[in-house]
Amino acid sequence: MKGVDAMKITDAMAADLPAILRIERLGFSAEEAGSAAQYRDRLEKLTGTFLVAKVAGQVVGFVVGPATTAAYVADWMYEQTPRNLPTGGHQLIYSIAIDPAYRGAGLGSRLLAAISERARAAHRETLSLTSLERNVPFYEKNGFINRGVAMSDHAGETWYNLVKPL
């Protein structure tokens, strides 16, 4: 994949929203995917924990989630984005998605490493997300521990809590 070595990870900006929404729709079912309004809210509230990966100035992936006192993602958080704690707590991940043309090049692992680095700098205890069963091996490869079935009925799917101690 051309330019992947020159990938830059930066904070997401409002101008990135169309590309973020395109990648979200390519990576998730209509029931799972966040809306434009939800992503605008996340851009406003999640400064420092909403990162994009860019190749040649084009968004090719992103990771987003709040830093909260809650150790796990709860379904209500998708609708009402909590504001980030300044320090401490847990770094949650709502979504990590890579443009299909760039999958398999390690970009997802690099985004996880970048958000982990920011979480450590802010003295977070864990990195936590929910995942469909088919993606659990990817997260385990990246240091996450499967804590079992989540208390989620998001999109009518079975989700698993994955946690990475920091």
Rank of each mutant, 00 (worst) to 15 (best):
V163T: 08
I98P: 05
T126Y: 03
I20V: 15
Q91G: 00
Y39K: 04
R103V: 08
A37C: 05
M151C: 08
K164T: 02
W159E: 01
D75A: 09
R118W: 02
F144T: 04
L162Y: 00
V163N: 00
D5H: 13
A6Q: 14
L51Q: 07
K45C: 06
Q38D: 03
P100L: 08
R118V: 14
G88I: 03
A30Q: 12
G104C: 12
P86T: 11
D99H: 13
H154C: 03
H90I: 02
L166T: 05
G156R: 11
V149T: 15
S116Y: 06
E32S: 10
E117H: 09
N142T: 09
V136D: 05
V73P: 01
G148P: 08
Y78N: 13
V73W: 00
N135Q: 14
P82F: 04
H154S: 04
V55S: 05
D75H: 09
A74Y: 09
I93C: 11
S131Q: 07
W159I: 05
E140G: 04
S29P: 06
V4W: 08
T69A: 13
K164C: 10
L132G: 07
A155Q: 06
E24A: 04
P66I: 00
V52F: 10
A56K: 12
D153R: 15
H154G: 01
I96W: 02
L46Y: 01
N146S: 09
A56W: 02
N84W: 00
G88Q: 05
G148N: 08
R134V: 13
L107V: 15
R83I: 10
V4L: 07
Q80W: 07
F28P: 02
D16G: 06
T69G: 12
D16A: 03
G61L: 12
T81N: 10
G65W: 00
L127V: 13
V63E: 02
L132Q: 12
S131P: 05
G57C: 12
A56C: 06
G34E: 09
Q80F: 10
Q91F: 01
F28R: 04
S128F: 06
K54N: 05
L46R: 01
R83E: 13
A30G: 01
S29A: 09
G57V: 11
E157D: 13
A30C: 03
A105W: 11
T47L: 12
S128A: 15
Y102M: 14
G65M: 02
E133L: 12
P100M: 10
P82V: 07
I93N: 01
L132M: 12
Q80M: 08
L51I: 06
P137Q: 06
A12M: 11
A6L: 12
A121R: 14
R110W: 04
L17Y: 09
M151A: 14
A155K: 06
R118I: 13
L107M: 11
A15S: 15
M1L: 11
L166C: 08
A113D: 10
R147S: 00
I93P: 01
L129M: 14
Y139M: 08
Q80L: 11
A15N: 11
R120N: 03
I98R: 06
A37D: 15
A19T: 05
D16W: 00
M7Q: 06
F138C: 03
V60Y: 07
A37P: 04
